[in-house]
Write a protein that binds this DNA or RNA. Structure first.
Lengths: 206, 206
DNA sequence: AGTCTGCTCACCCCTGGGGGTGGCGTACTC
DNA sequence: GAGTACGCCACCCCCAGGGGTGAGCAGACT
């Protein structure tokens, strides 16, 4: 089974690939987008989710037939919207690696894979994201990444399917860890700490 | 006469040097900070002015004996504060190049050179600054440069000796030319358009 | 003369943002 | 069990920022 991990942040992609590494007999990883992977594993960190995902374009670009969403957010409307947008699977980012591989194999075989409810918030060992080295939680980091793109709190709330209040909370806790107090400082911090997406991103900006 | 042009923005330095180029028989330019220039020409674009300039440190670092401030701002309190801070000359940025050279020669000879009142706002031909290619006036560009450093409007007003209202006005007009509407966007614009100072800057940030 | 550009400033009003407080649930560690 | 961290959310209050309006001055150009 050939898998392509898709996300704008090289650290995130590397972290997921690191997760799958021990399962080399069952999963081959491709970095190139043109090698016809069996499954595209679409990590939602800092990216469009649900109805605004461009599943068709991603599949065309990668010449793959299945796309599995890989996300922390298990809210029912978002999961449903992802399937309606064309995803073949919706995988929880808290899954242990072996279960992740099994789910990918089911997606690759043509089965629609839905997530089980879970409240786990701890990332699997080896996962990575920009800002982690500076003490940001995965959620804080994602918010900061979107701040670094110039989005407003409202826009961030919409993209992450969170309440504006949750966004503000993450900003508050993240700013304390970053040692900043205002948005421009946060943007600069993000630029300096590689929270900007790679230039290959084709994300539509609001 | 050996002159060292000092500013954080290479474009600004290059623009001033370009101005002085035709006077090669009277002015030699040094890029290196350790060649004992006769005069340091301190361009204030995006830098501390007046009482917060560190004239002594600049002179020590460059091993020069005279520092001439080069600024658009001719307000009397700022000029006085500059001399009190240790400057030997205060030169208006609207001066034609020949008069600039003459003024530098007087400074080099040990004369304290004060500016004549002037209302001119047009930069001498050949001057340059970051953002000029994108249509920003020199004043607008300076404000954007300070925004890109993460300063608040109040801090910018203090550093530029302008009213908060003037700062807001420049922000308004600059944002229209830049095609942005919010500060984070402006910071990103500044980063992308080289409005960040070079890393050698020893500017104290508030 | 008129017009345009740039610089400077004032004032009004509203929005985006950020500080605080409080609360809930879960996983994990000791 | 208690404590901590993380995720999620509400509400209060205030500030930083940005949109608008208006005004004045001067230089440069036609």
């Amino acid at each position: 089974m050939l898998v392509s991990v898709v996300n704008d942040y090289p650290l995130v992609v590397a972290g997921v690939q690191h997760l799958l590494q021990p399962f080399g007999e069952r999963v081959a990883l491709t970095a190139g987008p043109r090698q016809r992977p069996d499954v595209v594993l679409y990590d939602t960190f800092g990216r469009a989710q649900g109805p605004t995902m461009r599943v068709g374009e991603l599949l065309t670009r990668t010449r793959s037939r299945h796309l599995a969403v890989y996300s922390w957010n298990l809210s029912e409307p978002l999961v449903r919207a992802s399937f309606e947008a064309g995803a073949s699977g919706y995988l929880f980012k808290g899954l242990p690696a072996e279960q992740l591989v099994e789910a990918l194999e089911r997606v690759s075989a043509g089965t629609q894979v839905s997530p089980q409810p879970s409240s786990r918030t701890k990332a699997p060992s080896g996962a990575d994201w920009p800002g982690r080295a500076q003490g940001l939680s995965v959620r804080e980091a994602e918010i900061v990444a979107l701040i670094t793109r110039g989005l407003t709190n409202e826009e961030i709330a919409e993209q992450t399917f969170l309440s504006i209040n949750s966004v503000k909370t993450y900003i508050r806790t993240a700013y304390r860890k970053m040692g900043v107090t205002r948005r421009p400082q946060a943007v600069l911090w993000g630029v300096q700490h590689h929270m900007t997406a790679s230039l290959g991103g084709d994300e539509p900006e609001s």
